[in-house]
C-alpha cells in the first residue's frame, strides 16, 4: 500500500532542492470527505499532501493552466513542475508531451499506482451509504475500500464504489513517471476495457438515439466537462462563439464574421453539437480519466462518447492514447498497415 508520507517527503525534497517551482497534488478539502487539488511552493507545505481513494481530479489540467499563464506572462517562469499522477493522469501528461504542449524536462511526474483499487465514484458511494455522507474514505488494502461514517467504520469491496473508469482501467500504474510509489499490478480483477461502451452499443440505434436525446436535453451547458479536461486546452473553442481570442489587433470583420457553430441555448440540438464536437476532438487523445463524467452535475454518461472513439482507435489502429509519449500521436501519424478501406 502506498504510504502518503513517502509522497510528502519526495515532494518536499523536490522543492527543497529547487528542482521544481511547485508541486501539484491533493490535500484534504473543506467540502466533505473528498480531496481537492493543491499547489505547493514551499517544502513545509508538503505535510498537507494526501493519497486516498478520494483523489479524484486529473491534475494534468493544472500543467495546462500553468502553461497558459506563463504564455500570457511578461516574466514567464518555466521552471519544472512536480505533479502527483495516477495511471490515467500520467497518460494525460503523456498526450500533452506528444502534442508538444510542454517538454519532458519541464515536468516531474510523481507516479502513484492505484494498485488493486482506484478512486471512488461519489455517486456510487452516496448510493451505497443510502444518501448519507462519508467522513473518511481510505484504501482498505487489497481490493477493498474502508469507509467511516457517523455510524462507524465499514469495509466495502472496491468494485461496489470504484468509478467506472477505474473498473475498466487498463493501466492503473503510471507508465510515464520520474518516481513511482506503490506496486505495479499486472492483473486487476475488474471489468474488461470498453465494457460499458460495448454494452451500450449492443442496443438498437433507435434506443441509443433516444438515450442520447434524453441526455443532451438535460445538459446545462455549464461546460464543466470541457473546463476540467486537461486535453481540452484550445484557447478558442468552436462551440463557444464568444470566447475566441481577441487582441487589440483583431479586426472588426473577423469578430463580425465569426460563424456561430453553436448557439448558447441549452437545447437538444445545440447540446448534441457541443458534446459530439468535443468527443470527435478528443478521438485518439482521450485517456479515459473520466473527469468529464465525474464533474457533470446532471450525470450525463459522457465517458461513453469518448471511450467509443478510443475503442475505435484501439481496435482499428492498436492505439492507446498516452501509452507512449515518445511515439507520434494517432492523428498525426500514418502506417502502411493502417486500415484504409475508406479511401477506395
Amino acid at each position: 500500500m502506498v504510504n502518503p508520507k513517502e509522497i510528502r517527503d519526495y515532494a518536499a525534497g523536490l522543492l527543497e532542492q529547487g528542482r521544481v517551482k511547485s508541486v501539484i497534488g491533493y490535500r484534504r478539502g473543506t467540502a466533505g470527505c473528498f480531496a481537492e487539488p493543491c499547489t505547493l511552493t514551499e517544502p513545509g507545505e508538503a505535510g498537507s499532501l494526501v493519497w486516498d481513494p478520494t483523489c479524484l481530479n486529473n491534475l494534468a489540467l493544472y500543467l495546462v493552466k500553468d502553461r497558459k499563464q506563463q504564455a500570457a506572462s511578461r516574466t514567464p517562469d518555466r521552471r519544472p513542475i512536480g505533479i502527483v499522477a495516477k495511471g490515467c493522469d500520467s497518460r494525460a501528461v503523456a498526450v500533452l508531451l506528444q502534442e508538444n504542449y510542454f517538454k519532458r524536462e519541464e515536468v516531474v511526474v510523481i507516479g502513484v499506482s492505484c494498485e488493486g483499487t482506484g478512486v471512488v465514484d461519489p455517486r456510487k458511494l452516496k448510493n451505497s451509504l443510502k444518501g448519507r455522507s462519508a467522513l473518511k474514505v481510505e484504501f482498505g488494502g487489497g481490493e477493498s475500500i474502508r469507509i467511516t461514517t457517523r455510524a462507524g467504520e465499514s469495509e466495502l469491496p472496491a468494485r461496489e464504489v470504484l468509478a467506472d473508469r477505474c473498473l475498466e482501467c487498463r493501466e492503473a500504474t503510471p507508465k510515464l513517471h520520474d518516481v513511482l510509489f506503490g506496486e505495479s499490478l499486472a492483473e486487476r480483477g475488474y471489468d474488461a476495457p470498453f465494457r460499458a461502451v460495448k454494452a451500450a452499443e449492443a442496443t438498437s440505434g433507435e434506443a441509443r438515439w433516444a438515450t442520447w436525446q434524453h441526455h443532451f436535453d438535460r445538459c446545462l451547458r455549464c461546460f464543466a466537462c470541457r473546463s476540467v479536461c486537461p486535453l481540452c486546452y484550445c484557447p478558442e473553442c468552436v462551440v463557444d462563439s464568444t470566447s475566441f481570442v481577441i487582441t487589440p489587433q483583431t479586426s472588426a470583420e473577423e469578430k463580425a464574421n465569426r460563424i456561430r457553430w453553436c448557439e448558447r441555448s441549452a437545447n437538444t440540438a445545440e447540446s448534441a453539437l457541443y458534446h459530439l464536437t468535443r468527443a470527435i476532438h478528443l478521438a485518439g487523445r482521450c485517456v479515459d480519466c473520466g473527469e468529464c463524467e465525474r464533474v457533470c452535475p446532471v450525470n450525463i454518461p459522457l465517458r461513453l462518447l469518448n471511450t467509443k472513439l478510443e475503442m475505435e482507435a484501439f481496435e482499428q489502429f492498436d492505439y492507446q492514447a498516452g501509452r507512449d509519449y515518445d511515439r507520434p500521436a494517432l492523428i498525426s501519424s500514418f502506417r502502411d498497415e493502417d486500415p484504409n478501406s475508406f479511401i477506395r
Binding site: 499547489t39 455549464c222 464533474v295
Partner: peptide, 9 residues
C-alpha cells in the same frame, strides 16, 4: 481561485 476551472456549475 487558483484551482478554479471556470465552469458554470
Amino acid at each position: 481561485a487558483r484551482h478554479c476551472i471556470g465552469c458554470g456549475i
